[in-house]
Amino acid sequence: MTIQTFPAGKDGENGTPPEGTEKTDSPGRSGEPGATGAQGTPVEVAPVLTTVVPAGARRRGVPRWVRRPVGPLCLLAAWQIAVWTGSASTELLASPWTVVTTFADLVGNGELPKAILVSLRRAGTGLLLGGFIGITLALLAGLFRLGEDLIDAAVQMIRTVPFVGLIPLFIIWFGIGERPKTALVAFGVAFPLYLNTYAGIRNVDATLVEAARTVGLGRAGLIRHVILPGALPNVLVGLRFSLGIAWLALIFAEQINANRGLGHLMNRAQEFQRTDIIVVCLVVYALLGLAVDAVVRLLERLLLSWRPAFSGA
């Protein structure tokens, strides 16, 4: 009886159910399944039990800080081995070891630290300038209706312009010195900060705002104690985006008419076909990016310590 009714009901969905139905139905055949449950007689088939593994037991083995660098190191090793075995040409890409020695040379003659300092200053100035503009605009647009009406549409429009396309314009406006480079970084940085700060302000939990009003907070108090701290997680997300873009903008900006900085070093290396120097510069860019990201993560840990976050399984 049951076997007949079951497939009939599931027929429309797929063709396989009859097989499954027969299987699940056979153990129950010795007694009516419904009757067994109702009368409370012992179940004949014991449920399969799964042991819950305590979290501590699962975390055995290699600690994470050892585990994490393994991937990149394997990649490097593979590259070096490829060079040694002759399957990778050193003309096109210098071997990791050459890169290491070049790095030591460039640090030794002071060329690299000087270039890094110049580039860092450009990125830093641009970041400060762009961050100030982006966050100020976001505060005006986020906190005041008038600000939103005046600012938001304009910003949303301008942000669709690919900032790299502005380089020629910036050169005309600012010449070829430091200013177009700083301006490009600032331009790229301002938008992620604006968007995230604005969204953060507008997404602050309305029930918290209400609760804060009932304890007598005025407008200034609401902004200081509720809205800004509530928007902070988003601001930090925006900051991370901005930092990524700051490096990107810097690389673009330094490719043109720079006579100092990491980009200049790379450009010159290209002229002399020194792939090792190019790779050193790329590695430096990557390391600087990592370092900056670590700073933001530290900031997050300090500023958002109230937030119990999901830390991954």
Binding site: T207, A211, V215, H225, P229, L304, W306
Partner: peptide
């Protein structure tokens, strides 16, 4: 309120004297 509506970024005692 039905839900406590404490500001999550302020420690409990600062929530109490908020405002």
């Amino acid at each position: 309120f039905q839900s406590p509506r404490l500001l999550p970024w302020k420690r409990v005692w600062r929530n109490v004297v908020l405002g």
